[in-house]
Computed example of a mutant assay.
Amino acid sequence: METIHNPIKMSAAELSFLWATYLNDTMSVCVLHYFLQNAEDPEIKLLTEHALELSQQHVSIIKRMFINENITVPQGFTEHDVNLKAERLFSDIFYLKYIKNMAGGGLAGYSRMLPNIYREDIKNFYSKALTSALELERKATQVALEKGLAIRPPSIPYPQKVEFVHKQSFFLEGLGRRGSLSGTEISHLHFNIETNQLGASISTAFSQAAKTKKVKNYFLRGKEIAIKHQRVFKDYLEKNSLPVPPGFEQEVTSSVDSPFSDKLMMFHFSLMIYAGIGNYGIAISESQRSDLVIDYSRLNAEVLKYSEDGINIMVANEWLEQPPLSVDRKNLTKRQSL
């Protein structure tokens, strides 16, 4: 096949997005391949196969783009990072919740990337990826609804008349001044409880499966943080007599047979942490109660510190691939003067 070079060089954004997507999807290929080894429910298995096919397509397309433009292809994750013969670590219900969350993350990520992409072939790639993620999320939601596993956010009364805010305390003095929560605030609380429940479940599984003590302890600490954050968010809902979504840590088996390398599990957890930081940031920007903003801010600071400790573990073990960087002009000048 003839190699085709695009005359337009990738921008920093386009190169970085593709590089990160390649790593994420090679990880997903490993994880979803393992899921398929023991998935039993026909609908959930079909959904998993569809998710795997999408990740494989992404890896193939990005790899071809990089090769065509003489860009070093990242190592990412390979068959050496997954043990398909490992005992079952998760239930089918977990697979369904995981894929729904993964598709939601794709929707958020691709929609954030697209406005910063100008090259037609790359824009087409991410446009199709966004559409595919939307379809995957829709299918996952439908399966969850049909199986009675979908946990919808709480309902609130429909407005019966137009009303205006009369006191500044509605926005700035939520500490005990406004007892009710807005629909947006409820939505963020519900969503962040669910994502922390996923984090607690995965940290439970990974702590059981991790091979090294430092990595195992890191996941156990992550579980403690996820449970703590759930308590904070649940308290807001419970004080407003709103239902709290049930956890699903019970969907993790008692297996200690590791299906994934410690490198893959640490990378996977770092992605979840970064997504959580972004989720909290959006919640801060859309919350109109000062107590909520304060809680999200302090919890975000805790997650950032935890993330830094995880990066240190990855660097110490040479598990963290260096992303594409700009030219270090200062270093070039120093080398030239030697």
Rank of each mutant, 00 (worst) to 15 (best):
F171K: 05
H268Q: 06
V327W: 03
A108P: 03
S287G: 11
F219T: 09
N38Y: 14
T184N: 10
R112T: 12
V29S: 04
F191N: 12
L220D: 08
I273Y: 03
N124I: 11
N331W: 15
E251G: 02
S307H: 08
Y236E: 04
F233H: 12
L84N: 08
D309C: 10
S254T: 15
G247K: 02
F267N: 01
F17Q: 01
A13G: 00
V327D: 05
N116Q: 11
Y126T: 13
T195Y: 11
I4D: 07
S127N: 14
E173M: 02
L145C: 03
L130A: 12
L36G: 02
T131V: 11
T204M: 07
I294T: 06
Q230L: 00
I117N: 04
F164V: 13
T204W: 02
T21H: 14
A210I: 07
S203Y: 04
D121K: 12
L299Y: 07
E194L: 15
P323G: 09
K330P: 01
L320P: 01
K305W: 04
V165E: 13
A150W: 15
E120F: 13
D291V: 03
S258L: 03
L220P: 03
S16C: 01
Q37A: 14
L130F: 13
S203M: 09
T78G: 06
E79K: 06
A20H: 06
K128W: 01
T3N: 07
L134C: 13
N217T: 08
R231V: 07
S201V: 00
G247Q: 06
D92H: 09
E185H: 01
A51Q: 12
P7Q: 08
G104D: 07
Y118M: 15
E163H: 13
K161M: 12
S207Q: 08
L304R: 06
